[in-house]
Amino acid sequence: MYLPDIQLHEADTLEAAAALMEQLGPRAEYVAGGTDLLVDLKTARTEADHLISITNIDQARQLTADSEGLTIGSLVPVGRLNETPLSGTWAAIHDATQVMAAPAIRNMATVGGNLASAVPCADLPPILMVLGGGVDLWSRTGVRRIPVCEFFTGPRTTVRRHDEILLSIHVPPPANRSGASYERFALREGNSIAVASVAARIRLDDAGMMQEAALAIGAVAPTPLLLENIPAILAGRAPNETAWADAADAAVAAADPISDIRGSAEFRRELTGVLTARALRLATERIGGDST
């Protein structure tokens, strides 16, 4: 199994990458870790004449956390993110990074690639959505920030223009009295792909009622999806099983799964409900006294 004829170009700066893209046109693709793109090229799911390797662009390899929030350079390998200590609700990102693929793949796969390939069952989007993440898209005309929940337009399509480079992902600072989690169902323990996944974030007020709530589902709709009606369903209520059941109903209603070799649409809906309750339960459990 070989890669088709391609030309390989390397860019060390955003400018250089964009210049190459402009010059090479629509049959060129950026390549980061290559774990999606090379598989797609080898199996003829995608075609390209030119690959522009962007892995050496330092600007997109930063991983910083400060009072402004968490900034994950798009070229940060998932493995590095997985091993970087994260605080508060950010730590729930590890729920996703540690179940993704396997260590060797994670050493190659980048965070940006996981978003940019826009595979419906990708593991990072749901958790980044509930954490309020935004994607910075760089082009020669400037940077635009798109909320992760508005980034995907369909299976394998996003709002990213062909020339734009995903520069980084920004996650706002964790609010106090909040907890988050990512729950995923897969058919085996190692190196598996999500059949259904749910990310949740809860913030409690001083009275212990839910002040904020967010829920995102993965692998059960054409794109990962942040559920818009969850705040209305949960806000102001006590974090308990009745609330989780209502949220689960809403998630099941929002799911629009397909049937494929990993599971029927019916089973995926059932899983969505179960995982929703679990994710909310775990997110709530994780809310420490007054920790941030």
């Binding site: 199994m1 390989l8 390397e10 390549v31 870790g33 290559g34 774990t35 090379l38 598989v39 080898k42 199996t43 690959l51 390797s53 892995t55 493995g79 693929a101 396997a102 260590p103 060797a104 793949i105 050493n107 190659m108 190196n191």
Partner: peptide
Amino acid sequence: DVGDCGACTVLLDGQPVNACLTLAGT
């Protein structure tokens, strides 16, 4: 040849990677 089996694992700067998904040119 597509990252699933790990038989092609090599170390790059001490880190395991799948050689079948690593472009030699990079």
